[in-house]
Amino acid sequence: MSRPLSSSVFSRFVRLLRSRRFGRWAACSLLASSLSASLLPSPTFVAAQETPPAATQEVDPYALPASDSVEELQEYIAKLSQIRPDGVESYERHMDRLPAALEAAARRILELETDPKSDAYEQAEFLVMVARVLGASKLTPEGRSGLIDEMAGRLDGAIRIGEEAGLASQLASAVLALGERDEAIRAYRIFGAKIAATNQPDVANLGKRLEGIARRLDLIGQPFEIEGELVDGSTIDWSAYRGKVVLIDFWATWCGPCLREQPRLIDLHRAYGEDGFAVIAVSLDADRSRLEQYLETDPLPWPCLFRDRVGWDHPLALKYGVEGLPTTILVDRSGNVTHVDIRSEELLVQVPKLLGVPAKLSGDDPPPPRTAPSGSAEPSDDDGEGQR
């Protein structure tokens, strides 16, 4: 009987799907094609000995081996997962060829493996879907819609729900990166509802987050309200903010971009607070002592919601599908959302406009950023945002 692939092989493919580079490539690939055509939780499979990197050879690494051996095809798949493009052009060539190569090898294993309940068969069947998600940008919109429906069907009664849920999440993300917002919202809603119904808490939270992403993507023009416990243990009173322009700011003390935004938000609050501008922070710190240390050194002039030891799983972060920091939501005097993920430069324009008052600030000479608590890890930049 053939041995299962190492879990690290699957992890490498999933990391590729989760990377920002893949999202940017998918979007650029769609744009380039349209112009010229006038485009997981990591899987936890049974571990086996890792296939060592092959010696450098002048051969096509994507060429499917002419073999009837499941083991040799698995070794080929492992080598595909180890390819590391070293530049933009190399990455584009890799993504042009990887999905078809991976799918061909996985389908060949399905033809050769006699036991559909074996690890090798189940892994190959899963890799076919991974390959199709990796190649989603090459499908037509109708093809991607069909892939969403197929993925939804896979979630019904899935044995390895964690792996399937992670793949579903990346498919929805890829569709969003391709600019198909309505279809992405549909995917997030369908996948989220199915995944949230599982009896595995961590997986269920992913489902809640996917439902939240759909909710956040559809927030513009919708009424908004917020509830929860503040750092000091009291409860936020949303009714006190009626008639005000309110910025909801999801942040954390370890998030470098968040700390760079705060001085400008403080300036905005100072300039327009009496005109009716307010800020409510939602900290995704998991450590209360770290947050309290920060606030003692650099107090915020607005309330901060916090839930100890939950971090990214704060109820509001799940409700609105927060995946990166800072995430912001701007609410007008009528209580309706006007902007999502708005940054300080645009707030300089939108806040006085929504308040109906003259602009008092410009974007020149921004104040110095605030810093994380002394003795703690440096804030994360992570390509411009704090990420899960």
Rank of each mutant, 00 (worst) to 15 (best):
A168L: 12
L155G: 06
A158M: 08
K117N: 15
V331Y: 06
A26S: 15
A196S: 01
P368C: 02
W251A: 05
R24E: 15
E183G: 00
P141M: 02
L98P: 07
G375F: 09
D86A: 15
K138H: 13
G146V: 03
T114N: 13
I159R: 15
S283H: 03
R270H: 13
T338A: 06
R93N: 11
G135K: 10
L127C: 06
L291W: 01
V349H: 02
L291S: 00
F191W: 10
G207F: 04
Y294W: 09
A78T: 05
L230Q: 13
P85F: 01
E111L: 08
F45V: 09
A317N: 06
K319Y: 04
M151L: 11
Q123T: 12
E75W: 12
F277L: 08
H339Q: 15
W254P: 00
F306N: 04
E261A: 15
R388L: 07
I342F: 10
I226R: 00
I148Y: 06
A281V: 05
G233K: 01
S29Q: 11
L30E: 14
D249R: 01
R84F: 10
T253W: 11
E142D: 08
E103Q: 15
D267P: 00
L355R: 08
R216P: 03
P43L: 00
G311T: 02
E296C: 04
L206G: 04
S38F: 13
Q49W: 03
V331H: 03
C258L: 09
I159Q: 14
A168W: 13
P303Q: 04
S118T: 09
A124F: 08
A120F: 08
S67Y: 05
G386C: 15
L178K: 03
L305F: 03
S7R: 13
S67F: 04
S7Q: 07
D341T: 12
V203I: 15
E345A: 15
E72P: 01
P352D: 04
E111N: 07
D341S: 13
S380I: 15
S29A: 14
S376E: 08
K360N: 08
Q262I: 15
V279T: 04
V279E: 03
M129F: 05
P358E: 13
L217F: 07
D182N: 09
A359G: 14
L39W: 06
S33I: 08
G87C: 04
S283L: 02
T297L: 09
A214P: 04
R108Q: 09
K79I: 06
L210Q: 11
Y121R: 03
G276A: 11
P366H: 05
Y121I: 02
R216G: 04
K79N: 14
S11F: 07
V231D: 03
A131F: 10
R20D: 15
V133H: 06
G321I: 01
E296T: 14
R154P: 01
M151H: 06
M95N: 12
D96N: 10
A204Q: 07
E274T: 12
S137G: 05
K244L: 06
E150P: 00
A63H: 14
E122A: 12
A27D: 10
I83Q: 12
E227H: 03
R107T: 10
D285V: 02
R18T: 10
M151C: 08
W25D: 13
